[in-house]
């Protein structure tokens, strides 16, 4: 079972969270009118073997969207930060 160190709530079991997908994708600007960038944003994902930056939602806790690095091979969890705090 993955344990996630939520910056607000502390270390919690994974069943308090929902997986929010790849955090490397960047949502196009609202005024982006081309289809291509939106297709990339919605559908295109890498499937790396190793470290993967991803979103988790602390849905049973503080309801913050978190960003953390998970190793898809070992399930090791790296640093976890608030998604809103990403520079």
């Amino acid at each position: 079972m993955i344990r996630i160190n939520c910056p607000v709530c502390g270390s919690r079991d994974e069943n308090e969270f929902t997986y929010g997908g790849d955090a490397n994708v960047v949502r196009p600007a609202m005024d982006e009118a081309e289809t291509g960038p939106w297709l990339d944003y919605v559908f295109m994902r890498d499937n790396p073997r190793g470290p993967h930056r991803e979103y988790w939602h602390h849905v049973m806790g503080c309801r913050q969207w978190l960003m953390l690095e998970r190793d898809t091979l070992t399930h090791e969890i790296g640093d976890c930060i608030l998604a809103r705090g990403v520079a």
Binding site: T18, G20, V26, R27, Y55, H57, V59, R63, Q64, W65, L82, A83, R84
Partner: peptide, 13 residues
Amino acid sequence: LAMSEHLLQTAWR
């Protein structure tokens, strides 16, 4: 609610 939170905390900060 989850989608609103996601957009507000990531793309629309």
